[in-house]
């Protein structure tokens, strides 16, 4: 992990009508981190990420990405962000390689570079041998992997994974988690949101817990544990930390997805 700040929120807020969804949050994410954003549904995680990707405009506050003010430099910033949405965003009637080609080309990559990027992205998610298959014929796990491949062809410095393992089998889930760590080792900074505590515990170097639009705690797993107990040998889980800090169980919000 480097010392350079790759993403910084300063007093960031978002209101929809009278409802405050993100409430004055401030946060710094360093280059090379795998940063976990943890919180129940409606905590404001996706809204925060949507503001990072300029899908939503903040009501107030400021976002700096790669040292640039987001509102003034969005085109430059977008070129270096890979957003993996929670929902599958792929064309079923296009082949795997065509999907990757389409979405990678949106970042201005052409010719040989584009071909290389397609092969590398598909190889990264283990779908190179399925490159000529239609996406509609893929299993749920394969579609999730293709969903990732479509967002990484332009080699982003910052990858944002918005609950990428929802509704898939454990094997595919483990594969995706391994690949996230792999991408981080190759130099990408990762922001990862999930309902699954053990995923966040397993891969994230730092974690922020969000509730009701606010960040209520930030730190490494051990730092978060120390917020609720002074016992250095404590086996307390992240879920218990969450419960103690928010007074709520995460699984109450996660519906049937929480495993």
């Amino acid at each position: 992990m480097k010392d350079e700040t790759i993403l910084e929120f300063k007093g960031l807020s978002k209101k929809f009508g009278d409802k405050t969804v993100v409430d004055h949050i401030s946060l710094e994410i360093k280059e090379g981190e795998i940063f976990g954003l943890l919180g129940p549904n409606g905590a404001g995680k996706s809204t925060t990420l949507n503001m990072v990707c300029s899908l939503l405009k903040p009501t107030s506050g400021n976002i700096e990405i790669f040292g640039l003010n987001a509102s003034d430099n969005m085109k430059r910033i977008k070129n270096q962000i890979g957003y993996i949405p929670q929902e599958l965003a792929i064309h079923g009637n296009l082949k795997a390689w065509e999907n990757v080609e389409l979405f990678t080309s949106l970042y201005g990559i052409k010719g040989k570079d584009l071909k290389t990027a397609i092969d590398e992205s598909l190889e990264f998610v283990g779908l190179l041998d399925k490159r000529k298959d239609y996406a509609k014929n893929f299993s749920g796990g394969m579609k999730r992997r293709l969903n990732i491949a479509c967002a990484i062809g332009h080699k982003p410095r910052l990858m944002i994974f918005d609950e990428p393992t929802v509704g898939i089998d454990p094997q595919s889930r483990n594969f995706i988690l391994e690949k996230i760590v792999d991408a981080n080792k190759r130099g990408a900074t990762i922001i990862y949101t999930s309902h699954y505590m053990e995923e966040v515990e397993a891969i994230c170097t730092r974690i922020a817990i969000m509730d009701n639009g606010r960040i209520i705690a930030v730190g490494t797993r051990d730092e978060l544990v120390r917020l609720v107990t002074d016992d250095p040998n404590s086996n307390i889980s992240l879920e218990e930390v969450f419960l103690t800090l928010t007074g709520k169980k995460l699984r109450d919000y996660a519906g049937g997805d929480y495993l």
Partner: peptide, 17 residues
């Protein structure tokens, strides 16, 4: 309809296209 059904708009909006 393929774009809307598959939420492709998200990708366009995240890209500099």
């Amino acid at each position: 309809s393929s774009e809307r059904k598959n939420r492709i708009g998200l990708r366009y909006r995240c890209s500099p296209a």
